[in-house]
Amino acid sequence: MAKANKTRYESEMKTDIPPKGETKKKFKDPSAPKRPPSAFFLFCSEYRPEIKGERPGRFIGDVAKRLGEMWNNTAADGKQPYEKNAAKLKGKYEKDIAAYRAKGKPDAAKKGVGEAEKSKKKEEKEDGEDEEDEDEEKDDE
């Protein structure tokens, strides 16, 4: 059974065609402001040490599940301070991102363009080496 599956897989992979176009990784500027945490994440940052302290051997998923249950069981009044803090952080982030965008293109983005130019020059250099190889072959004849 396993051999049949393996041969079927190999035959399918021979005819498999990858999607068209290149997927380029989006450049992320390290100097850009970071997004603020949500009210839930602020809640988690406060209660995570407490939950880990109860049972130090718990897995990350178990801790996250417990935090989610606690958040869902918390009344609206209990969530309100976290939501206010999250709104305040979001307002600050919006001001920071507006100022960041007003500056224009950041230096790091220009570096990304420079790297693309370097790769083009490298390709041109490699093309030039191919031409030199052809010239050498002609001289040998």
Results as ranks from 00 to 15, higher is better:
K92I: 10
I51A: 06
A86T: 13
A2R: 14
E126K: 12
S38V: 02
D96C: 12
D62A: 10
E46V: 00
V113F: 05
W71I: 06
A2G: 15
K118Y: 12
G68Y: 05
A108V: 11
D107S: 15
Y100F: 15
R48A: 08
K20W: 02
V63S: 05
E54T: 14
V113G: 00
F43E: 07
P36N: 04
Q80S: 14
K3D: 12
T74G: 03
A86I: 10
D130L: 05
K79M: 09
G104Y: 09
D135F: 08
E22L: 02
K88A: 15
Y100C: 13
K6I: 05
E46C: 09
A86L: 10
P81M: 09
K52D: 11
P81Y: 02
I51W: 01
E117C: 01
K3M: 09
K84E: 15
A108R: 11
Y93S: 12
E50Q: 08
N73L: 13
P56D: 06
K110F: 13
E12I: 08
P36F: 03
E22I: 06
K103S: 11
E124S: 07
N85K: 15
K34N: 12
A99Q: 04
K103E: 11
S31R: 09
Y82D: 01
K138A: 02
G104S: 11
R48W: 03
K111Y: 06
N5F: 06
F27D: 09
K122S: 14
Y47S: 04
D96V: 08
E69A: 12
T74L: 15
V63I: 13
E22F: 01
K90G: 03
P30R: 08
V113L: 02
E129C: 11
E136H: 00
M70D: 07
R101I: 10
A98C: 05
K111Q: 05
E117S: 01
F43A: 00
P36L: 07
P37C: 04
D107W: 08
F27Y: 05
A76Y: 06
M1K: 14
